[in-house]
Design a protein around this nucleic acid. Structure first.
Lengths: 335, 335
DNA sequence: CTGAAAGCGCTTACAG
DNA sequence: CTGAAAGCGCTTACAG
């Protein structure tokens, strides 16, 4: 592999001049620059990343900290990882994967080994232990998620409150006066787990304002349980015919259950949902929905992290990404 | 951040002695070692990765090259990425994500920038362009996939031929004499795309040997097309009642279509399939199946890459990971 | 068994 | 506008 010295010799200049044209931080005459560029091309030279990192004390890499070993819903995960890597590269950064079960340890090691310039934490919840080493070392980081106490770290997330309001409005606009609110298990809401609670509160508030009565249906974990619960809810004649779903597993299962019961959408039931965009790719999920926005979220995260690294002491940023409603004609207008 | 010099001072030894205990490549007396360890702990020291990389010319990182921007089926992708990262860490390696649409360019840059010690290429097909810069630079790499011409690069993959044979046997053992062979679009087989063709050939051979007549059904891309095709195939009274499915989209869609037609498994139809394990996590896929083995494949890949880096000139390795059949009582025994 | 010195490939003041 | 020199934090022969 060619070094900067080889290039300098080839171009007939000093190593520091080569470095100057490489970094672009110093004026170099066009002639000299041309000679250097030619030598670089001829030798297929490119800067040794480790050497540059050592000299600049900037690694130009981000650590992406994946939270769960058993990712709750990995289709979304892959979309985020790829979007993050793409966005990072556009800013000249690489992305290294930190997947240890003990994320705190992974973060600590990456910090003390100076492996990364900053972190992006995926799937952050309240009291996330990974925050500890970061806020302690005052290391640049951006959270994806919106914990109550972000401990002075920047954060970005989908605007779940807006999503809930959009979905409620969509049902209310169609003239419905009541709807089932199909939810995650209640623990998720009481444990203060950020996105769920934000969605929940906003849905309730908006429903109240729009005079929509919400009938909560908590759906337990596991395919069979999901199926049974949905079936019971749909069979109960007391229950509303509109469904507002905030539970990916329920979204995926619903068509099966509708099939079991011979119910049609929107003729028999009106359905809106919040779910990962990936879900819609492989399945026939013809429900009007608000989808997650991995690309927009990833780009915002990378941009925020870049700025944070550039100015460590600027004020803490929070950013909410506005989702959009994808209409799929699954709601019937009622008088 | 503490440096090796700080540790040396704290421990009252030279920097090279500290380095010796850190690398473990030289005998150091237990007493001295203890002093160094104590200093390391006290100062929370850990080696600066970039500096070590520069000194050893080993980055201790692998580049994982993800092929498609639009991942065909990203649930599987996430599982592979996490498994790779975990396996790498166990060997002391980090994993950097290379997601550029132009994978060849990404590989080239990582090589000339000395960013990685080797590559793992995901989802390799015949004539994969990413192989070019790797085989040209004779850079250590392991392919996940089994192209006809691996150009002297190690490769590992699921044993799709064995998978096909297992599934055919399962149907034949239950006494069936014929089965629909639900497949990807034909282009996938004619384009020589490795796993599909291996599965296909093996299924046909085994079926012939077992006296099982296979009726091929090609399923086009897109949810609606999948649904229509499956429906037509199931409604056709000429078609066998056993299904051998090698198409994730068809696997996911089948329950809907069975529901549409009021068919029960295994009473009305017997079903076996090959699909990504992730599929079964979120959905009720109660079909006997052979699932992909991301963890085993990832571990093999990492291990092979480690060995390849250690001995660049050892003979090329190919490795097939034996999958296992997951019985789910979806096949009816016939006379 | 331990330490002084050179070197890995860069960048960056500092002179000129 | 260009170049000589020091330094980033390690490792590794080489002496002792």
């Amino acid at each position: 592999m060619a070094t900067i010295g080889d290039v300098a010799r080839e171009a007939g200049v000093s190593r520091s001049t080569v470095s100057s044209v490489l970094t672009g931080r110093k004026y170099v005459s066009p002639q000299t620059r041309a000679k250097v560029d030619a030598a670089v091309a001829k030798l297929h030279f490119s800067v040794n990343a480790g050497a540059r990192a050592l000299a600049t004390s900037r690694t130009m890499t981000f650590g992406v900290v994946v939270r769960f070993h058993e990712a709750e819903f990995s289709p979304a995960l892959a979309a985020y990882l790829i979007a993050l890597s793409d966005a990072a590269r556009e800013q000249g950064y690489s992305v290294v994967l930190l997947t240890e079960p003990d994320g705190t340890e992974a973060v600590r090691r990456a910090i003390s080994g100076r492996q990364v310039d900053g972190f992006i934490l995926l799937n952050v919840v309240d009291d996330d232990p990974r925050l500890e080493p970061i806020s302690q070392a005052r290391y640049p980081a951006v959270l994806i998620g919106m914990p109550q106490d972000a401990r002075g770290v920047d954060a970005v997330d989908l605007d779940f409150a807006a999503a809930a309001a959009m979905l409620v409005d969509h049902i209310a606009d169609a003239g419905h006066r009541e709807a089932m609110f199909v939810r995650w298990p209640e623990e998720l809401y009481s444990s203060g787990s950020t996105y769920a609670t934000r969605f929940d509160r906003s849905a309730r508030e908006r429903a109240e304002r729009r005079d929509l009565r919400l009938v909560p249906v908590s759906v337990p974990v596991g395919p069979e349980q999901v199926r049974t619960t949905l079936r019971a809810a749909l069979e109960n004649p007391e229950n509303p015919h509109a469904l507002l779903i905030h539970n990916d597993a329920a979204v995926a299962m619903l068509p099966f259950v509708l099939g079991d019961l011979g119910l049609e959408v929107p003729a028999d039931r009106s359905v809106v949902s919040l779910h990962a965009a990936e879900l819609a790719r492989l399945y026939v999920l013809s429900f009007t929905s608000v989808e997650s926005e991995p690309v927009a979220v990833a780009q915002a995260a990378v941009e925020m992290l870049g700025k944070r690294i550039a100015s460590p002491d600027s004020p803490v940023h929070k950013r909410l990404i506005m989702p959009h409603l994808e209409p799929r004609a699954s709601v019937e207008t009622v008088a």
